[in-house]
């Protein structure tokens, strides 16, 4: 009869739940115990520098274009001291809108913008969640310690000419007929 099956199942359910009294909770007691966050965790965003200690960001706007919630704002400027190097005059991320999707990191051609395993960003005032460039810029290289965009890019900078980058052949003279 159905009613016996119901009764049995209901009692069985009670017993199964009651057995949980003796199991250890899975809760992580957060402020004292910290959960392990993998290095690729998508948390607070930083702007990194290349191994020479210069800003990686070349203000190409790709991150701002890729961001699905449009929370990155920046303004490009030329650095008069470093020939042909662009840098962001200001760089602003509104973390109250950021969804930590990592699209900016994927879009960045210079590995400048990176997401870090840090999620403790709570603030009492919402306005404090708008991070300016000085809040974002760190002095290290982040996840890619050896990468330096200008070393592999074929542009001329103040310390190297065209063709002097890594894995780059000397420039071809297109006006000469010699092979």
């Amino acid at each position: 009869m159905n009613i016996w099956i119901y009764a049995r199942n209901l009692t069985l359910g009670l017993w199964i739940v009651f057995k949980r009294t003796f199991t250890k909770p899975v809760t992580v007691q957060y402020p004292e115990e910290r959960p392990y966050l993998p290095p690729r965790w998508r948390g607070r965003i930083v702007l990194t520098r290349d191994p020479d200690g210069e800003e990686r960001c070349v203000a190409c706007y790709l991150c701002a274009a890729a961001c699905p919630v449009d929370c990155i704002a920046l303004q490009a400027a030329d650095d008069p001291t470093a020939q042909d190097r662009r840098y962001p005059e200001f760089f602003r991320i509104n973390f109250s809108r950021c969804i930590y999707c990592g699209m900016c990191e994927e879009a960045c051609p210079t590995n400048a913008i990176q997401l870090t395993p840090d999620f403790e960003q709570s603030e009492y005032a919402r306005r404090n969640l708008v991070y300016e460039k000085e809040d974002l810029l760190i002095s290290g290289t982040g996840k890619y310690p050896d990468y330096n965009f200008y070393r592999v890019a074929g542009v001329k900078t103040r310390d190297k000419d065209k063709g002097q980058a890594e894995n780059e052949l000397p420039p071809v003279d297109v006006r000469s007929l010699m092979p």
Partner: peptide
């Protein structure tokens, strides 16, 4: 309720 749901 917490204990039976494997939390504290």
């Amino acid at each position: 309720l917490g204990i039976w749901q494997e939390r504290y």
